[in-house]
């Protein structure tokens, strides 16, 4: 029996995209300046009949198929999101019945801004290590909110990632984990508010950078890693610049960060952001590679994980399940009017 780790992964990105220039056209911004600032060329948009639940189901279905784990062996489902279609009513229980999992398992919805999806991974790893469950599924999913015309309108997007976590058939062993959190109000959404508020520049230094850097420094010093140990480093991606800057602050070379950056193509999928990057890296990793995965959630906290890729990875990469590249490539562009309709930002009775 190997160490606990990722047995399978699945990513679902809705088919629709809106280009940054189309959003800029609406709001009188210079599209080139926006693209340069955020390094976001386009972002994914969920269809009118999609939400965090449907995206979570699709991602988890793909992850289970890739893992080749029979659904009776799954003992826990954790869903991290800040886009719950219901204020009160869990997503995890819908997942159980949509995936046909056993009903006598742990089903949990979690919220920590964009970090909760990764927190599910940490929770399930603990349950597996304790021998309480055989496999668990951690899902990070969002149909991210952003006020039209506001900064977030250029990045807030939709997508989901699911990880099947267990001990048997592990493709990426979890070697180490380190967490860092503090009360740093950089971004929030009040109960009942449709869109989040944020502190613009304040989301940077005291928030994103401080927490990620502290988590990674803590991890490195506690477990004795060097930046050069990481074949790939994947960070939460609110835009294209932040992960590059934080990598540079940590002394991690750009070519190890860029493969995991998806925000340029799909925008910020909040809870799925780092996990989709992680899944993409898993699809190109080789046995022996070491992957640093760092999530970030506003408010604020960061979890740093180190994975060691095993020989099983090639089998998982070849599994008959849609790859991240497939999701990134299969797209249909929409204009701003369609975007507003699909995101239910024009008043719809449905």
């Amino acid at each position: 029996m190997t160490r606990v780790g990722v047995v399978g992964w699945g990513v679902y990105i809705p088919r629709y995209r809106i280009r940054t220039e189309e959003v800029a056209r609406l709001w009188g911004d210079d599209p080139q300046r926006i693209a340069d600032v955020y390094l976001v060329n386009e972002k994914s948009v969920e269809a009118l009949d999609e939400d965090a639940v449907t995206i979570a189901v699709e991602a988890a279905r793909i992850a289970l198929r890739r893992a080749g784990v029979s659904r009776e062996r799954v003992g826990a489902v954790y869903v991290g999101t800040e886009s719950k279609p219901y204020a009160v009513k869990p997503i995890a229980s819908i997942l159980i019945d949509a995936l046909g999992l056993r009903n006598d398992i742990l089903a949990v919805d979690m919220e920590f801004a964009c970090k909760a999806g990764g927190d599910g991974l940490a929770a399930i790893a603990g349950l597996v290590e304790a021998g309480r469950v055989e496999y668990g599924i951690a899902v990070g999913v969002d149909t991210s909110q952003g006020e039209p015309g506001e900064h977030l309108d250029y990045s807030a997007s939709s997508g989901g990632a699911a990880l099947v976590v267990g001990r048997d058939g592990v493709a990426a062993e979890l070697e180490a984990m380190y967490a860092y959190a503090s009360d740093t109000p950089d971004f929030w959404r009040r109960d009942g508010s449709p869109y989040p508020m944020h502190g613009e520049g304040f989301t940077g230094e005291p928030a994103y950078f401080r927490h990620i850097i502290e988590a990674v420094r803590g991890l490195v010093s506690k477990y004795g890693y060097k930046p050069a140990d990481f074949t790939y480093a994947v960070f939460h991606q609110p835009n294209g610049r932040f992960p590059l800057r934080v990598a540079s602050a940590l002394g991690i070379p750009m070519d190890r960060v860029k493969p995991g950056i998806v925000v340029t193509h799909i925008g910020n999928t909040y809870n799925a952001s780092a996990l989709i990057g992680f899944a993409r890296v898993l699809e190109m990793a080789k046995p022996g590679d070491r992957i640093l995965l760092v999530t970030y959630g506003s408010g604020a906290g960061s979890d740093a994980f180190v994975f060691r890729v095993t020989d099983v990875i090639t089998e998982r990469q070849r599994a008959p399940a849609p790859a991240v590249e497939h999701m990134l490539r299969n797209k249909v562009y929409v204009d701003y009017a369609q975007y507003l309709k699909m995101r239910k930002m024009i008043k719809l009775l449905e």
């Binding site: 269809a47 009118l48 009949d49 999609e50 939400d51 639940v53 449907t54 189901v57 699709e58 279905r61 279609p85 219901y86 819908i94 949509a98 009775l349 449905e350």
Partner: peptide, 17 residues
């Protein structure tokens, strides 16, 4: 096959998938 919202019972009611 995809999993989608099918019908929504108004603003406050159930979302049916």
């Amino acid at each position: 096959l995809v999993f989608r919202r099918v019908a929504v019972d108004g603003r406050h009611g159930l979302i049916m998938y």
